[in-house]
Write a protein that binds this DNA or RNA. Structure first.
Lengths: 160, 160
DNA sequence: CGTATAGCGTTAGTCTCACTAACGCAATGG
DNA sequence: CCATTGCGTTAGTGAGACTAACGCTATACG
């Protein structure tokens, strides 16, 4: 009840987000993802990489050479966008693009030795960046978050 | 070891995402947010609303009439984009835009009775949509998710 | 066999978002 | 009184997800 004058002004210096908004999971997700994406993209940009590079390189290491369409399906990158991503990777000598002898419609994308080294580098960098992203959480909490998010994503991927 | 022929083909019919990718929190976040945003936006679009409408209406109900700049700060909507949002709300009679008598630079945005009803409607709709979004999670897990996300968002909002 | 269907890589273009720059104007503080 | 700051507004940028359509090739089917 004291300081009535100050109470007149809405607390605009610290413009609190309405509770309704703060609590909505969808908003938490999009706000946090905005910051997460920025963190990851900036970090990768500093070493002339993009997250799509990582996705493709990881996919190639784990499953071996593949067509652009298969990579597209595995990474979630759309087929039209994959063209540009592969171009960038080829330009950096991280990947080779050769016609598939067994199917002339396809290009076979192969991981180069340099690409393999690059992937290791990016993995280390991403570990650091995620440490920064998840800084406020204890290890067990990080696992829990991953588990919850995975369950949700799986659910909404099965039934689009 | 049986069915050696089938083993030759990479399992392309179910194009598994590489483990490295699946585990990365940043990827889980952006993939899930993509789906979450789609769910929410589509749901709101069906009643001719957008999530910014909700944010502004909620902010007005909770803190009373405010300038566009204040609303911008509270909701996270950028000032240039706020102009259009208010225009849409005015066009739908959910909000009134009047010059602030105390400060001629400002417009005072006021919630209309119709806007108040609209907010209740949107709140109910969002409850349903979030039920769909969080379907695979038990109530306690939903709370836990909200708690973890809030901690992360707070951390990355304090220190941009 | 031959023809329809489907998959491939690619080009082009759309739409939505978050964001920046800069303007004319009004208020405030040294 | 003038410099600075804040306001609403217009315009425009850049990235990301996505669609349409094309020419080509492989496969399935009648």
């Amino acid at each position: 009840m004291t300081r009535a004058e100050a109470a007149d002004l809405p607390d605009d210096s610290t413009p609190r987000t309405p509770e309704r908004l703060r609590r909505r999971t969808s908003r938490l997700l999009s706000q946090l993802t905005l910051r997460s994406d920025r963190l990851i993209n900036d970090g990768l940009a500093r070493v002339d990489a993009r997250k799509w590079h990582y996705a493709v390189l990881a996919s190639l290491l784990e499953y071996g050479p593949a067509s652009q369409a298969a990579l597209s399906r595995r990474t979630g990158i759309h087929r039209p966008d994959m063209v540009g991503v592969i171009n960038e990777l080829v330009a950096r000598d991280l990947v080779e693009r050769t016609p598939d002898p067994d199917d002339q419609r396809r290009n076979l994308i192969t991981l180069s030795p340099r690409g393999r080294r690059r992937l290791r580098r990016l993995d280390a960098l991403l570990d650091d960046l995620h440490d920064e992203l998840l800084a406020p959480l204890a290890p067990a909490e990080r696992d829990q978050l991953v588990e919850l998010l995975t369950r949700l994503l799986d659910h909404h991927s099965r039934t689009p």
